[in-house]
Design a protein around this nucleic acid. Sequence first.
RNA 1: GCCGACGUAGCUCAGGGGUAGAGCAACUGAUUCGUAAUCAGUAGGUCCGCGGUUCAAAUCCGCGCGUCGGCACCA
Length: 658
Amino acid sequence: MVQISLPDGSVRAFDAAPTGLALAESIGRGLAKAAVAMRVDGVLMDLTRTIDTDATVAIVTRDQPEGLELLRHDAAHALAEAAKELYPDVQVTIGPAIDNGFYYDFHRATPFTPDDLARMEERMREIVDRDEPIQREVWNRDDAIAYFQSIGEQYKAEIISDLPQDEVITLYRQGDFIDLCRGPHLPSTGRLGKAFKLMKLAGAYWRGDHRNAQLQRVYGTAWASDKDLKAYLTQLEEAEKRDHRRLGREMGLFHQQEEAAGMVFWHPKGWRLYRRLEAWLRERLERESYVEVKTPQLVDRKLWEASGHWEKFHDSMYIAENEEGLRAYVENPKERIFALKPMNCPCHVQIFNQGLKSYRDLPMRMAEFGSCHRFEPGGALHGIMRVRNFVQDDAHIFCTEDQIISESKAFCALLLGVYRDLGFTDVFVKLADRPAKRHGSDAVWDKAEQALAAACDVSGLPYVLNPGEGAFYGPKLEFTLRDAIGREWQCGTLQVDFVLPERLGAFYVGEDGAKHHPVMLHRAIFGSFERFIGILIEHYAGRLPMWLAPTQVAVATIVSDADGYAQEVATLLRASGLQVELDRRNEKINYKVREHSLAKVPVMLVVGKREAEERTVSIRRLGRPDQETMALADAIAALVADAAAPDGVQSPVAAAAE
RNA sequence: GCCGACGUAGCUCAGGGGUAGAGCAACUGAUUCGUAAUCAGUAGGUCCGCGGUUCAAAUCCGCGCGUCGGCACCA
């Protein structure tokens, strides 16, 4: 007799140990149909296994998150089976479930083509129709290795060899295909359903290491139902519509071209957006007692050697000299050569080092909107998000060890306020702590890590540990925000640095009259302006908040009789500080409304004969079908108020009140 | 950097060894119209670059550059 407790608290008794399938059947047909696996006393298992002892069991269904994950994993297996059937020369490697789907990495001498993708997907559907039972088998380790070697599956044999000695080796068999897998799996391939689609081909390195063989990765998406699949594909189309490269062109913000790969040509409208954002952030920094500096683009290699960057990154640094100097450098690499700065910190230390600093000067918060060049590998470039020339909203806080906590707290507050004002409220943090190879004593690391953790706590920021991922010079916080369609972007950073000040000879005179090295906090909120603006564009799908919109108001006439008045309206708006486009073209109002809507102009003022006579305007806001007619003076006042940048002033006051 | 795909008018794309195509945009003209496309006409090209095959190359082949999707990288 086996007693099984269910999640609703009820208990069912069975004479003989039932399988998960039988249990599900006994509860209900609908549940049995949707079942993909079960949890027995918390352990995920195949439905085909029997429940031998009294236990608490929950049936996992295909629409639950973990059920969906299993489904995707099964889709990967079906893909592998299809690939093996169609192309006997492939070797299978790994095929996990991922967000929205799955992939499988294959080894094969000849590359797959898009046609192969279609064939494999077709074969997967046949495998589902065959409804092959999926059977779990426990194998002896050496037998398993020998077996996979015998069928030419070297990668599988290697995976098993590397599994811990005490690991139970399970293989899953479906049709003629047998694969190493931890499981669990569906009872049969028919349960997978057909809500999947193979999406793309890509290269991927074996075990993620570029020194290893390159495999062919096939990506697919898989869902519990056709409806979900369709919704996902629609969502992809929507994401494509907010692609910053597309919107950048459509809205006339910037362009990029071959002659300056990885760099940005900002057009007037894009540059206006950039400048507004910069000016706004600058004001925020000044309020927090940052001082702004500007440092050289070209700096002698000596400085980069001293900072340690040359040794580690000289491959991706641009060097510069005149022709004669370059020739001399090529002949003798010891010749003097300049490099375009890949970052600002060494230069900031140079400024700090001018004149004697006292502990009374600390903390010193030195900011720079520093233009940096890095020779990023060609395959890494991506619109304006990953470029070779970018501007960091960089700052370095020179402080004492005792000031790390308060400075970190203040920075978190500043960062959160900036994000919030830009429409990002969903922020989380990773705390990357000490790596194996590091500088500085454990006591100092303790202090720094604690300071960063404390800063998160006080700021109400949840953080997850990113163990061992800190820089060799200190721990760091990595700030990640979630955009309107749920994508995550790591933007901000706060890094504690015990090393650079020492390497570059920075010191201050302490209360004790002795010289001490300051701690440097490297911090950024946007990370890079280029990338952050890309994120903003995609977050808002181009419909930027009014204060950032490159064109804030379009004044459009209905008839040419209103031209004079429209001109006057535009002039008054401009005098009030708004960015205005005047559209007096001989076009129908429908046409103009459509055009300015597509251009994502937040406000349209439509003026016809009536408005001109009454000195009013008809206001139409982007994305809304209705209009409102208002006296001109009232409208201007309202629009000016709408266009005000968030000033964040209320936040410290509110914080003080709390 | 690696794997794969792609590069034709301002944009989106068709064509695939023998005279370069469409829609939208642009320009010209007509139309003066009330909130997401008025009509007609005109003009527009180093088919990414270089080399090769061929009587003939946008088309086939090679190399390069760039873009896209991944992978690796990201101080």
